[in-house]
Design a binder for these strands. Sequence first.
RNA 1: GGAGCCGUGGUGUAGUUGGUUAACACGCCGGCCUGUCACGCCGGAGAUCGCGGGUUCGAGUCCCGUCGGUUCCGCCA
Length: 594
Amino acid sequence: MKTHDCGTLRPKDAGTAVKLAGWVQRRRDHGGLIFVDLRDRSGVVQVVVNPERVGPEVFARAERLRSEYVIMVEGEVVRRMPGMENPALATGEIEVVATALEILNEAATPPFPIDRPVDVEENLRLRYRYLDLRRPDLQRNLALRHRVTQAIRSYLDKQGFYEIETPMLTRSTPEGARDYLVPSRVNPGTFYALPQSPQLFKQLLMVSGFERYFQIARCFRDEDLRADRQPEFTQLDVEMSFVDENDVLSLIEGLIAHVFREALGVELAPPFRRITYQEAVDRYGSDKPDLRYDLPLVDVSSQVAGSGFRVFSDAVAKGGVVKGINAGPGKGGWSRREIDQLGEFAQQHGAKGLAWILYGQAEPRSPIAKFLSEEELKAVGEAMGASTGDLLLFVADTRAVANDVLGRLRRLLAEKLGLIPSGTYEFCWIVDWPLLEWDDESGRYHAMHHPFTSPNPEDLELLETAPEKVRARAYDLVLNGYELGGGSIRIHQRELQTRLFRVLGIDEEAAQNKFGFLLEAFTYGAPPHGGIALGLDRLVMLMAGGESLRDVIAFPKTQRAMCLLTQAPAEVDPAQIRELRLRLDPEVAAFKQS
RNA sequence: GGAGCCGUGGUGUAGUUGGUUAACACGCCGGCCUGUCACGCCGGAGAUCGCGGGUUCGAGUCCCGUCGGUUCCGCCA
């Protein structure tokens, strides 16, 4: 139907007869002469309908054109007259003089403008997602996503990886997020779970001897949503045999550099920084620090341990810390109101209070300065690199609370102070994670990564005596404060896996029941292996400069996990429920009636 | 589960201390126009202000509830 793509025509095509097809972006009707901006995936080109070149019938047809009509145009590419070029348009040096024009389909007036990037209410965009997707931003983002996945596939193929699919209907596993469940009709009373990740299958593929596997895999987690969390999302899942941490990290560094080069034309400089978990938490108050700005947390416990300010000295005496952050001079000084807002923020996130000092001012403006000696003030200021007028903020609490609150404050301050440069990509690896984490709620240890993560062999003897001190052979990849993904070297020996399950409070029987197939597989010659999973949506989102996953997913869900286009989830025919041998909770049924 | 913000013609917004004709731009419809490209000019249609209740002589505006969207906390790796 078409010989060329609209957006690709250039002066060198002048004189060529072309057939184009696409959507009417805009029509400019001058009465005796009609201009049509014709758009297809490749871009826009101006079509001129001149009664001297077409019959009255075609001209009348051009007069009928409206926005988003689908048309086919035959014509000749001509250079525009001097002075008539449009530098804003890639095809602006030429135009297509129509010789024939056909309306392939009419279009209702769209509910929001397609040709301009107007901010439209989210629910309208989602309801008419197919129209939203016509707009330039989403066209660009999905094209980028395509280039990213293609770059991933070609890179990993060259590195000897096989792309292998794993089941979507699998079994529910304990640990981790809530599963999406699918009832089995053939086996009443039993359920599949949609995979949270292909974790177990990719390990089994290593036992199978594939050595290098990857998959661009859809994953499902039934948890509450965020701007960077959708209920179904896509992971680049990778697993390799006979590797250690460095092999995985350098492979991924090479992959990421390749992807950025191919898809964005951006040169990165691997290797990426490696930061231990402890360092990240101590210095940035986060296990996914944004390194586009510094703004470090400073421990001033030793400087204020003996202070007359009881809040400080008591916190230290009780084994806690006093940590601070230097918020700098602000944008032309800090108002009391701004400082109070920071204090409220700190309290909302669990601090008892936020102490502050406007450093070195003749009249040191601070509610706490009078409790600190000159020497203490000076020592604190030095530790924090303070100059006159800097706002120093402090949290005195347990180490965990102080780090968490100040880490959040750090992010807030960076935003408020405009310290975040755009268009830069600061990658880092977070390494040396704790293997386990005590969970008060369930009264047992949880795997911080997942229960198949190998402990650091140096810490193995602590596994039963001081589990929280055991380091994991795990790593996270962080970009601009977002967790892009994580992985680990896995346990590949049955004994160690059983031992770890025991520490996690999963007894032999439960382990057999839930993971028997994996434990058994390990007895048949499982190679040492490890891997990683990267959030593809997040990666593309950050590459696209977006702030929401919705901007890089063709058909995303709302925060209530609804698809406004198809109205999913929806009720089903009662017969379907009966067939599955399920019954609705009467309360739910009653609620639906009302 | 909790907190914040948003909801006014098709779209994006304005709407004063509550005061009676709800404004503007774009879009849409009709007319004119042969060099526009966010074409221009003339004319026109179109909203009971998300929904329900309350306060009031009077509610887009105040209060309560509810629905939807969104951001965050909890949750989630």
